[in-house]
């Protein structure tokens, strides 16, 4: 399915407020939230105010949340969580309709796994997390946003993700007609227009 597969993994805000994400990650909040995540909660409330989500937070904001393990999780737990999620999101095991979305999620899971399974990368990720820098959370997302990001100014992570969610909501309300029929380039242009219009 070249067409579906071409669908780029767009901003996570596009999908995470949906119910599917909650089902997918049943235990994202099973661990006590760290201070860094307080910002995220605030963001989620903003999101809820937009009428999309509910009070219950659904979008995992750290690699630990994404893999559904605690920050103290052992390397074996990291591997087991990775395998569990791979069996859920790898395109080979995904139903036809969800392949593109799951591919995007698989790439996120892969990044989380690669970071947390490497002791030195995990240590520096933990340090960044302790400083409250969520920006490191998904370099994959960051790079996708690079295509439509209007300013390159140095912003803290939570502010950017908030802006992205707002932009996403605007884009969604503006472009209700099915995005799926557009090419990747067309969607990116539309998105760039939306963020330029802010």
């Amino acid at each position: 399915m070249p067409h579906l597969a071409a669908t780029p993994p767009t901003s996570s805000a596009a999908a995470h407020p949906t119910g599917a994400a909650r089902v997918a990650f049943r235990r994202p909040w099973s661990t006590p939230p760290r201070p860094a995540r307080l910002h995220v909660r605030a963001v989620r409330r903003e999101d809820a105010g937009g009428g999309v989500g509910t009070e219950e937070p659904a979008a995992p904001r750290t690699f630990y949340d994404l893999l559904g393990i605690s920050a103290e999780g052992s390397p074996d737990e990291v591997r087991a969580a990775y395998r569990r999620l791979a069996l859920k999101y790898h395109p080979d095991v995904s139903p036809q309709g969800a392949a593109a979305e799951n591919t995007r999620r698989f790439i996120e899971v892969q990044e989380a796994y690669e970071t947390l399974s490497d002791p030195s990368r995990r240590a520096s990720y933990d340090r960044a997390l302790a400083r409250g820098v969520c920006r490191l959370a998904f370099s994959g997302l960051r790079s996708h946003r690079a295509y439509h990001r209007q300013d390159q100014g140095d912003k803290s992570g939570w502010r950017r993700s908030w802006e992205d969610q707002v932009a996403e909501l605007k884009r969604r309300s503006m472009a209700k007609d099915s995005d799926e029929n557009l090419s990747w380039g067309a969607r990116m242009r539309r998105r760039a227009e939306a963020s330029a219009a802010e």
Binding site: M1, A146, Y147, R189
Partner: peptide, 26 residues
């Protein structure tokens, strides 16, 4: 690289931004 092992390259200008910048190429 997608699930079918198809390779696509996307490229374009990300800085500066604005209406004078050409669209991305896939």
């Amino acid at each position: 690289i997608d699930a079918s092992n198809v390779l696509r390259v996307f490229a374009g200008v990300v800085k500066p931004q604005g209406p004078a910048v050409p669209p991305f190429i896939e």
